[in-house]
Design a protein around this nucleic acid. Structure first.
Length: 476
RNA sequence: GCUUCUUUAGCUCAGUUGGUUAGAGCGGCGGACUGUUAAUCCGUAGGUCCUUGGUUCGAGCCCAAGAAGAAGCGCCA
């Protein structure tokens, strides 16, 4: 008999029909009620087992997370928790399980424990919801850009460019690591390496995306990104996914408009299409926070936070205004900040948190940063002191987006590269984009896992990617 | 990389001033149960107290080093 997906069944409620469902047992109560989930949606279907029709050997194997097929008639449920249920004629064990050895249990398990069992954690309610939403956000990214005439551009994962300046890189090599070939002066001879020169994993597709924007107008990248930083935080991964739109003929204001509209779209898409998963995640957090002092709880429940972000304009301030706000703040005057704030220094996490969580209580876009704390390719403003760079700051997770208008003036770009010791010969192709038919353009990078983290309310970024890579950890 | 905290049963944790045989809840296993919703009830097994070294008559507890994990910071998305 053809399998019916549980999400479809729960939606259509075909009472009186005979169906077959297949999935994993979430609970087996009273030797009678199977809560079955096949991943097609948040909700389980209840299957009622008739012990007189079902061999005892089969009933014994209906255990937690066993995989079963149930065939029977769909009826209106006598119980209170669900509209319909399946009266099982037959139960077939597709994949039994040994509960004495299976590490997962039908109870609360810590995220740290489940991270070690990443091959099973998607079977839990929390992680199945998280990963359905992760998919939804990825889909919404592509839909948003496609609907607006952007082209999806695949930028290289292995890069020969060493000058992107976005962070420490992972080396890619096929040389014998114990005995690499050496040059006459005793250094590793990368001419003999696979690509004939040193290569690394990409830290950003931006520079290549600019190539696309200078031909296709509006492009975006969405791919894996690698940073070999020794970052041990709940917001950093060594391997993560980044989205980088790049728009020709756009300035920094167009860039900020795009960033705000884009983030709001992603959140709206999940709110509209995955309410059950969101509600479960919200209840999970609310229960968890009951034991915390009020000050440590979220100011609003999860879905309310998401609606608030969608319904309100982000606050837009310049870096110079941000510094002034911080210097006029109570915590600053009381000496509560650990790091100094004066014009020219980078904002520390504590300062950003003050702006987002205390001062404005909503997402904040900070624009026009001092040139000395930003990258070489960002466009010099007329004041000669700041560049057209912007960061989008979110509560809890900090920087979600970093972007800028790019320096399109060849002489200015060369001057900035010289000032910041970026070798011109490595980026000659990048300079060519200014030499031949260049134009004003802008773009940004959005950390995919960070926005998934925000939408799901998960506190650690390692719990929103199936197989997290962090310093010292590359399991699975 | 820095600071702080944690590590005791399969999981989540308690463990008094250093003192005899290390506990609980949940889970597992055995049994009961034809309307359950984290089902419930009865019974039962289960321990390298992270590792190594030290102090002590005696260490889960004190000291040192190491390992693993977490939170915060820095770097950033």
């Amino acid at each position: 008999m053809k399998r019916t997906e549980i999400a479809t069944l729960l939606q259509n409620k075909p009472v009186g029909e005979k169906v077959t469902v297949k999935g994993w047992v979430r609970a087996f109560r009273s030797n009678r009620f199977i809560a079955l989930n096949d991943g097609t949606g948040f909700n389980n279907v209840q299957c009622v087992v008739d012990f007189e029709k079902t061999p005892e050997e089969v009933i014994k194997q209906i255990g937690f997370h066993a995989c079963v097929a149930v065939t029977g008639e769909v009826v209106e449920s006598q119980g209170a928790g669900q509209d319909i249920e399946i009266l099982a004629d037959t139960v077939e064990i597709l994949g039994g399980t040994d509960l004495e050895k299976y590490p997962l249990q039908p109870k609360k398990m810590s995220h740290e424990f489940l991270r070690e069992k990443a091959h099973f954690r998607m079977r839990t309610q929390t992680f199945s919801s998280v990963f359905r939403i992760r998919h939804a956000v990825a889909f919404a990214v592509n839909k948003y850009f496609n609907d607006r005439g952007f082209y999806y551009m695949h930028t290289p994962i292995i890069t020969g460019s060493d000058a992107e300046g976005a962070g420490e890189m992972f080396r890619v090599t096929t040389l014998n690591d114990a005995k690499p070939p050496l040059t006459e002066d005793g250094k590793v001879d990368y001419k003999q390496d696979f690509f004939g020169k040193p290569t690394n994993m990409t830290v950003s597709g931006q520079l290549q995306a600019e190539i696309g924007a200078m031909a296709l107008g509006k492009v975006y990248t969405f791919g894996p990104t690698f940073r070999a930083e020794n970052s041990n935080t709940s917001r950093h991964l060594a391997e993560f996914w980044m989205i980088e739109p790049e728009i020709a003929f756009g300035d920094i204001n167009d860039d900020m408009d795009l960033a705000e509209d884009f983030i709001k779209y992603l959140i709206s898409y999940v709110l509209e299409n995955y309410p059950d998963d969101l509600q479960f995640l919200e209840e999970r957090i609310t229960k968890l926070e009951r034991n915390l002092p009020t000050a440590d709880r979220r100011p609003m429940p999860l879905t309310e936070t998401l609606r608030f972000v969608v319904d309100n304009d982000f606050e837009r301030i310049t870096y110079t205004e941000a510094v002034r706000h911080i210097q006029n703040s109570k915590p600053y005057k009381k000496g509560k900040f650990e790091f100094p704030v004066e014009w020219g220094t980078d904002l520390a996490a504590e300062h950003e948190r003050y702006l987002v969580e205390k001062k404005f209580k909503k997402p904040v876009i900070v624009v026009d940063y001092p040139k000395d704390i930003k990258a070489f390719y960002m466009r010099m403003n007329d004041d000669g002191k700041t560049v057209a760079a912007m960061d989008v700051l979110f509560p809890g997770i900090g920087e979600v987006i970093g972007g800028s208008q790019r320096e399109e003036r060849l002489d200015m770009l060369k001057k900035r590269m010289a000032e910041m010791d970026v070798p011109e010969h490595e980026l000659d192709w990048y300079l060519d984009l200014r030499r031949f038919g260049g134009c004003p353009h802008a773009g940004f990078g959005l950390g995919f896992e960070r926005i998934v983290q925000f939408i799901t309310g998960m506190s650690n970024i390692r719990d929103v990617i199936p197989f997290p890579r962090t310093p010292g950890n590359a399991e699975f």
